Amino acid sequence: MKLNVVGILRDAWAMAKRDSELLLGIAGVFLFIPDLAGAIYVAPAPAPPAVVDQTSADLWLKQLGVWGQQYELLVIVLSLLSLFGVLALFVVYIDRARPTVSGALGQAGALLPHYLLLALAVSVPVSIGSILVFPGLYLKGRLLPVSPVFVGERPIGVFAAWRRSFALTRGNGLVLMGLAFVPLLGGRLIALPFELLGTALDGAPMANPVVAAVLDAGIAGGHTLGTVAAVLIEIALYRRLSSGI
């Protein structure tokens, strides 16, 4: 089946316009705020040494351990909040009963442990494949419908959702690889000016809390918009693939 990519993007945009208040509510609380809190309260993890030897590697691991002791729990909590928000959006759109926001949040809470396993089963191989760029993007494209499948065709296991996603996307791997890149690029482009401005100021934002907050909010906003766009594209894609349109 030949995919109508323009139609998928048009469907996603129509959902964004129609449900802007709903999207702002869920994404604002569970995506934007955790991302902003991470930027404000979590220091960057120590970068690996440019030249690797025993001494530098030991020092880096020690610094990484200290960083983990200070921020690991907060990072986990913020990540779970973001994952919960993404899952709630899928429930709102994919569940045939069209639950209310409060109902979707309740269902998302019940589904979260299994969805966490699914997220790990997707992100780990995609991250490994991304080392070589093409394999990671290709795998990401083939797994675009996996979250809607998990929500819309439950009860379904993690690996059954993988197989179903691959079956739905058969013959469209390269097209979906490009489609997967669209929200990533869009969110990145929105956040990039704020990141560049922070770099250009060379640490000056840290001396001015207002400037720092504005820059962090801009970056978090870009990330949030990219995530919401990805969710809506995945939903629109799943609806077309599952209905044979």
Rank of each mutant, 00 (worst) to 15 (best):
P145H: 00
V146Y: 14
V146M: 08
S147F: 11
P148Y: 02
P148M: 06
F150C: 04
V151A: 08
G152T: 11
G152C: 11
E153T: 14
E153C: 15
R154V: 03
R154G: 13
P155F: 00
P155I: 04
I156P: 06
I156H: 13
I156S: 07
G157K: 05
G157M: 04
G157L: 04
G157T: 07
V158Y: 11
F159K: 03
A161G: 15
W162Q: 01
W162P: 01
R163V: 00
R164N: 04
R164A: 05
S165D: 03
S165H: 08
F166N: 11
A167C: 04
A167Y: 11
L168E: 12
L168N: 12
T169S: 12
T169A: 09
G171S: 02
N172Q: 12
N172R: 06
G173E: 02
L174F: 15
L174Y: 14
L174G: 08
V175N: 03
L176T: 02
G178H: 02
G178A: 04
A180P: 15
A180G: 15
A180Y: 15
F181H: 09
F181G: 09
V182G: 09
V182S: 10
V182A: 13
V182F: 14
P183V: 07
L184V: 10
L184M: 10
L185I: 14
L185G: 09
G186W: 14
L189S: 00
I190Y: 09
I190M: 10
A191G: 08
L192Y: 10
F194Q: 01
F194G: 05
E195D: 15
E195F: 12
E195K: 13
L196F: 12
L196W: 13
L197I: 03
G198N: 03
T199C: 00
L201Y: 10
L201P: 06
L201H: 11
L201E: 05
D202E: 12
G203T: 01
A204Q: 05
M206R: 11
M206T: 10
A207R: 10
N208D: 15
N208Y: 13
P209E: 10
V210W: 06
V210I: 10
V211F: 09
V211T: 14
V211L: 14
A212S: 10
A212G: 05
A213K: 00
L215D: 03
L215W: 08
L215M: 02
L215R: 04
L215T: 04
L215Q: 05
D216Q: 13
D216V: 07
D216I: 08
I219R: 10
A220K: 08
A220P: 07
G222T: 02
G222L: 01
H223L: 11
H223G: 06
H223V: 12
L225T: 12
G226C: 01
T227C: 03
V228E: 05
A229C: 07
A230F: 09
A230H: 14
